[in-house]
């Protein structure tokens, strides 16, 4: 669900953009920025729910210190969105509580 964005990134004519998705919703953002910046400007209010009380959380420090900005990126949960640059086609999901590992048959062979 999109909320009113907390931040905006004023458009610059001619600058390149990439398209990412959050929970399946498409967001077009400038290339080169962090995933967290992209989501904050893309109307994402809640990035994750906390591990103990499932409270909503969003980025606090934007410099890799607080771990409030964790999301699932391309299937890998628990990624620090403030430290990861956006790439075209990136699929992002909210992180619900702690990360989940895939221990199903077959998943194990790709290491």
């Amino acid at each position: 669900m999109a909320t009113e964005p907390y931040f905006v990134i004023p458009a610059k004519p001619g600058s390149s953009t990439v398209t990412i998705t959050f929970e399946g919703r498409k967001i077009v953002v400038p290339a080169g920025i962090s995933v967290a910046a992209a989501l904050l400007a893309g109307g994402v209010g809640v990035f994750r729910t906390s591990i103990v009380s499932a409270a909503p959380r969003a980025p606090f420090c934007m410099m890799g210190v607080c771990f409030e900005c964790l999301v699932e990126i391309d299937g890998i949960s628990g990624r620090q969105s403030c430290m990861v640059p956006v790439t075209d086609g990136m699929a992002i999901r909210r992180q619900e509580g702690s990360s989940a590992l895939d221990v199903s048959e077959g998943a194990k062979d790709d290491v």
Partner: peptide
């Protein structure tokens, strides 16, 4: 969020409060 965080948004992405 931290004001420092907001400044990172400004420097890194040119993002400002909506």
């Amino acid at each position: 969020m931290g004001a420092g965080a907001a400044q990172v948004l400004l420097k890194g992405a040119g993002a400002v409060p909506a």
